[in-house]
Design a protein around this nucleic acid. Structure first.
Lengths: 140, 140
DNA sequence: TTATAGTATTGTAATCAATTCAATTTTAAA
DNA sequence: TTTAAAATTGAATTGATTACAATACTATAA
């Protein structure tokens, strides 16, 4: 837990219990959770937790570059730790999101060099293995 | 206009006037418009146009792979023609979106090869030239 | 032409993620 | 302590999107 406090301090964030638990969830639980998921996971531990606090905290983390908003073909925004950049693959059939461990090598196009590029996000979409197998079954 | 009708037919979409005008807007007007922008642009020409129709049409276009939903750090979904894939740069300060003409060369990571990758979207984020200049002015 | 079925369009109501904001609680410093 | 600043809360609101039932349009066959 002290590890999380340090991480927060290192990013210029005062380590409250709520913040440590949200960071802990981002670190230890499954990737790219939504605000709703985080809220539901922590309301048992922090009975007074408000969803607004989860929103506030994730905005703060994102601003301080501790977390990153992952944009998917989805309604809800999802969050990842900024320390582990990875590309995503999202199945358009079942909406499951898969991660890469490695981040594809990619440099910014020349046209963007005049801007200050701080981050890149890469999203592959298509049909996942499991959905492809299911649909080929049906068609036969 | 007949050109647009052909494009629609080629994608298995029956060419109604509304659909042609929406396609025309996507083709000729600025990139990645929102539903709201398309609606406002066309309500003068089609006075009975409903926003639901714009939503329906864009869903249809996307499904038929004529258009693509562009995911940005934004509330509103934006749409582009699928025929012109390009990466985007979005300024986190002013939210302006810049395009590339060229699409960065990028192959799917090995871990994704078992899935059927149909599309890739790439989003660079940071501070655009104009905002960087503005903010350096202020700080001096 | 008329009837009919299928498709497209419309508008209202509902949904739901996200934000606003004022009130309350907590924390830390004087 | 006292006080000010920061963090958290919750209710109300916003705004994009969807659901859905009603209406309008289109095309084909009798």
């Amino acid at each position: 837990m002290e590890k999380h406090a340090d991480t927060l301090r290192n990013h210029g964030i005062k380590p409250s219990l709520t913040r440590m638990l949200i960071l802990s969830y981002l670190t230890e639980e499954g990737s790219h959770p939504t605000v709703e998921e985080i809220y539901k996971a922590l309301i048992g531990t922090i009975p007074t937790l408000s969803k607004t606090t989860v929103y506030n905290t994730l905005h703060l983390f994102t601003q301080k570059k501790l977390a990153r908003a992952v944009m998917l073909k989805d309604q809800e925004t999802r969050y990842d730790l900024a320390a582990h950049p990875h590309a995503h693959f999202q199945c358009l059939e079942c909406n499951t999101v898969y991660d890469t461990s490695a981040f594809p090598q990619l440099s910014a196009p020349e046209e963007f060099l005049k801007h200050t590029v701080e981050d890149v996000s890469i999203l592959f979409t298509g049909l996942c293995q499991s959905c492809r197998e299911k649909s080929s079954h049906i068609e036969q």
